[in-house]
């Protein structure tokens, strides 16, 4: 059963001065100085407006947002368990649909937005998110990716960059690099595997300006289950001065290590297209973070090589690790 509720027709924010002024996620959260994930919360709440319910899986943004019986949320917000992001969104959407069917609440569009961190969303909660994207409910799942389990003092996850120092992957004398996994491509995995999910995007809270807010609005306008993966530089875990968190996000996108795109009904549009705008060396991005302080030239070359492969050899550049020239096994 597809939804028959009236949709909220969100307008695209064209100029920075047109961004809504009112906050629905406001001051008084115990996040780090210069936290980009807090900006993701602020921007999606601002873009979606007051008729929104947020659910958050355990992670930095849950613990920081409930500093002992206080909250910065203006919109209703619910905490759920670490891997339960997708399930909580489905449950909430189903509950609201049932209440509307029974006439207990007015029939109107209520946005359901779940945010899960990279451990809660991409590692533990991946199956739940996958299941949520197979439903016909209107829900948006935001994966805020600070590349570690940052709440518990930085443990490696499936989304940590190759070579990064975390509490699980310290650099040692015998083995310089302990994080030897390449970053998981969550957004394309979900886009390719879920035809019911019409809109998948990647974004960064601050670069390009307004991009994340507009992607949130687009996802809500498209309706059905949708997914956005955001790239959030984390001053604590990546070890850089908090003042530079915007700059790090911009460099990460410009060097191509985090591709920026949206996939609407199977059609890919690059928000920042390195084929047109070029890529800066990955090194420029890596050397500005303490977590890569142990890397040597060899490692920089390896990471650069992997990023080059992403953009030059993959069938969907930067997105899907499938190379052209594959033939059927029975040739």
């Amino acid at each position: 059963m597809a939804t028959t509720l009236p949709m909220i027709d969100y307008e695209k924010i064209k100029k920075v001065h047109d961004a809504p002024l009112e906050e629905f996620y406001t001051s008084g959260h115990r996040t780090c100085q210069g936290c980009e994930s807090a900006l993701v919360m602020r921007d999606f709440a601002k873009a979606s407006g007051p008729r929104t319910i947020a659910t958050g899986a355990t992670g930095c943004m849950y613990v920081a947002n409930t500093s002992y019986q206080t909250t910065p949320w203006v919109i209703p917000w619910m905490h759920t368990q670490l891997g339960a992001g997708g399930a909580s969104a489905v449950g909430m959407a189903a509950g609201i649909r049932a209440l509307m069917r029974k006439g207990k609440i007015a029939k109107e569009k209520i946005n359901i937005i779940n945010f899960s961190g990279d451990l809660g969303g991409a590692d533990m909660g991946l199956s739940g998110i996958s299941a949520a994207l197979q439903t016909d409910y209107d829900l948006l799942i935001i994966l805020y990716d600070n590349e570690s389990a940052a709440n518990t003092d930085i443990q490696a996850t499936g989304l940590s960059t190759y070579g990064a120092v975390t509490t699980f992957t310290p650099s040692g004398k015998k083995r310089r690099i302990m994080q030897r996994r390449w970053k998981k491509n969550v957004a394309p995995m979900l886009a390719i595997g879920h035809p019911t999910c019409r809109y998948v995007a990647t974004a960064s809270a601050t670069f390009p300006a307004l991009d994340f807010m507009n992607k949130t609005r687009k996802a809500l306008n498209v309706g059905g289950p949708t997914f956005i993966h955001t790239f959030d530089p984390c001053p604590k875990g990546w070890d850089f001065h908090p003042g530079y968190s915007r700059e790090l996000g911009e460099l990460g996108i410009k060097c191509g290590i985090f591709p920026l795109y949206e996939i609407l009904d199977g059609k890919v549009t690059y928000t920042y297209d390195p084929h047109k705008k070029g890529r800066i060396p990955v090194r420029d991005y890596l050397v500005k973070q303490g977590r890569f302080a142990h890397l040597i030239d060899e490692d920089f070359d390896y990471i650069q090589g992997m990023v080059d492969t992403m953009w030059e050899e993959w069938e969907l550049p930067g997105i899907a690790p499938i190379k052209s020239g594959l033939e059927m096994a029975s040739r």
Binding site: L21, E22, E23, F24, T26, S27, G28, H29, R30, P50, T66, S67, Y68, Q69, T70, T71, P72, W73, V74, I75, P76, W77
Partner: peptide, 23 residues
């Protein structure tokens, strides 16, 4: 936990904020 009461107007301290924790 009660949410922050919705309220916004232009000018200093015009946005309602979390009173229990200032940071």
């Amino acid at each position: 936990i009660p949410a922050v009461k919705r309220g916004f107007k232009l000018g200093p301290r015009g946005q309602n904020r979390n009173d229990g924790f200032k940071h």
